[in-house]
Amino acid sequence: MSGNGNAAATAEENSPKMRVIRVGTRKSQLARIQTDSVVATLKASYPGLQFEIIAMSTTGDKILDTALSKIGEKSLFTKELEHALEKNEVDLVVHSLKDLPTVLPPGFTIGAICKRENPHDAVVFHPKFVGKTLETLPEKSVVGTSSLRRAAQLQRKFPHLEFRSIRGNLNTRLRKLDEQQEFSAIILATAGLQRMGWHNRVGQILHPEECMYAVGQGALGVEVRAKDQDILDLVGVLHDPETLLRCIAERAFLRHLEGGCSVPVAVHTAMKDGQLYLTGGVWSLDGSDSIQETMQATIHVPAQHEDGPEDDPQLVGITARNIPRGPQLAAQNLGISLANLLLSKGAKNILDVARQLNDAH
């Protein structure tokens, strides 16, 4: 009898209710805020589980004197976190989706994509230029951005401005803007500013005609071990179906173009009346040469937790077992079709030249 009692006690200790789920994140304040929001949602869904947040620095956090596009290494903000995932030191990792490459290392998958916040870019102005827009900034004003995508589009749109690289986390960039006289304004992701509670610093939100956004911008991705079915089931509740389908289309477009950090590629997606609209573009580094096109596809946005595919093969690095396969494939095909259209119009040449120029500098 006593033996059975011990077995029952052991089973209770090993039951999922007692389990601590370890969540990996970057150390920056924004990353911690984003991770806290994901953990809060998981806690609400699984009140019996405990969650421990483990923060670590990544290569991208450490190399702050070089433009991201020049470092010449993929997975700048993800490699150390993936290493911890691989060694079973954490069970899942919360990322900004735009930091996750469209091809993940073997053994990993994006197990959830959370509801997207505003994906557009924002302009934050130096205190002396508050009330201005990019259009009304004085001639030769210097605007800071760490992104080739932003610089290429904005140089084309605002030729009277000069664009220079600015690195560091959000706090560091804002301090550089406010305390030094080098920059009249800087460009940042609206979602990051909003998550930090800095709505009052948003001086201008850039519309798609001015600057399309990065693939996955404004959404959070939760990376897990691809074979860890328990954790895949656990994080599945975080999937937002519309965000998922938009981001599958965007990531398929980028992957098929073979774009990345070192080339200016941008997108804009919208879901309306059962249609998914995808606009994508590529630019030369100075913005003088560009190709942009829009395509659409009829896609039914499923309700969360309709029964999805059981075999769960990944699409552009994403596993969404609780979302039907048909809409996911339709979104992926839309991204591939748009990429093929741009490639047929000469996108590869623009991107190759951009890559060579970026590598040469």
Rank of each mutant, 00 (worst) to 15 (best):
A331D: 07
G260A: 04
V94S: 01
I53H: 01
A67I: 15
Q180T: 10
S165K: 05
F125W: 12
K98I: 04
D273H: 06
V237M: 08
L234D: 04
I323C: 11
A360K: 01
A44N: 13
N333D: 01
Q155R: 11
P302D: 12
M295I: 12
V23A: 15
E209W: 01
G203I: 01
R164A: 11
E209V: 03
H207Y: 14
G131E: 09
D352T: 07
R201K: 09
G168K: 01
S141R: 10
I336G: 01
D286E: 13
I323G: 04
F77G: 01
N171Q: 12
Q194L: 09
H120C: 12
H256T: 14
I21K: 01
L315K: 07
A67E: 01
R173H: 03
G60P: 01
F253H: 05
E162S: 06
S262N: 15
K27S: 12
V301S: 06
A67H: 04
A347I: 03
A266G: 04
I166E: 01
P105F: 14
D230S: 13
G111Q: 01
F77A: 04
G24T: 03
I231G: 06
G111D: 03
P105V: 06
T133I: 09
V202A: 10
P324L: 12
Q275R: 14
G317L: 03
E73C: 07
V103H: 01
P127L: 14
V20Q: 12
D311T: 06
D233M: 07
N169W: 05
A40I: 08
L137E: 03
V265R: 01
L177M: 12
V263G: 01
Q180A: 14
L343K: 05
F77K: 01
S69N: 12
R325C: 06
L137Q: 05
L234W: 11
T190F: 01
Q50E: 15
L343G: 10
V39G: 07
E306Q: 13
L315V: 03
K87S: 13
L285V: 10
S45T: 13
F158A: 09
L276I: 05
S288D: 14
M212Y: 01
P106H: 13
A252F: 01
N358I: 15
A151C: 11
L343I: 01
L234G: 04
E117Q: 09
Q194H: 05
L234Y: 01
C261M: 01
T145D: 01
H256L: 09
L177C: 07
S28V: 01
R156L: 09
A151Q: 14
E73Y: 10
K62I: 15
A360R: 06
S344A: 01
H126Q: 13
I186Y: 03
E135L: 12
T279N: 13
N349R: 14
D36K: 14
K115D: 13
Y213K: 01
K132I: 11
T35F: 01
H199W: 10
V124C: 09
